[in-house]
């Protein structure tokens, strides 16, 4: 029932950052997402909170990306990585994915959004979602190994 705002703040922010690639705009959108969610009594406790949060964030990101882009400042790199070579190769492969596929990997693997929520968010069946995600990960794995 209860939503951990602190945890979800980071996840929504990460999602917005990867859509906008701008720290300040991503944080503005994250806060706007939570403000809209907090202002909505109808949706807050209906058990579809995550879907609602990601829908607001996605719509706000779409609106924001239509505005003229400001040159983003250089962003921080991760402090430590267990396998830097694999990470660089993976980042390169991720950039080659379509934005939709990249978003799905981010939501499911990194933000750990439940499959049920993703199905409602994308309007697809569980089977279709699993198949699509498996295909993306298989492709990534093959390109990294090959």
């Amino acid at each position: 029932m209860a939503l951990d705002i602190e945890e979800q703040y980071d996840r929504i922010y990460r999602y917005c950052w990867f859509r906008l690639r701008d720290r300040h705009r991503a944080e503005d959108i994250t806060q706007e997402t939570f403000l809209r969610w907090l202002a909505s009594d109808t949706w807050r406790d209906t058990g579809q909170t995550l879907q609602y949060l990601y829908t607001i964030a996605r719509n706000l990101c779409v609106d924001e990306s239509r505005k003229p882009a400001v040159d983003p400042l250089p962003e921080d790199l991760p402090a430590e990585e267990s396998d830097p070579l694999l990470s660089i190769a993976l980042r390169h492969e991720l950039e080659r994915l379509s934005p939709e596929d990249r978003e799905l990997v981010l939501l499911r693997v990194v933000n750990e959004v439940p499959v049920g929520v993703l199905c409602r968010l994308y309007g697809v069946s569980r089977f279709a979602l699993y198949r699509r995600l498996r295909g993306i990960l298989k492709g990534l794995r093959q390109r990294l190994e090959g």
């Binding site: 922010y13 950052w17 991760p78 267990s82 990470s87 991720l94 990194v110």
Partner: peptide, 18 residues
Amino acid sequence: KLYETLKGAFHAPPPERK
């Protein structure tokens, strides 16, 4: 390993006003 690396690959700079 792929899952772990994927989590690191989606690194975003930490939010400042959280």
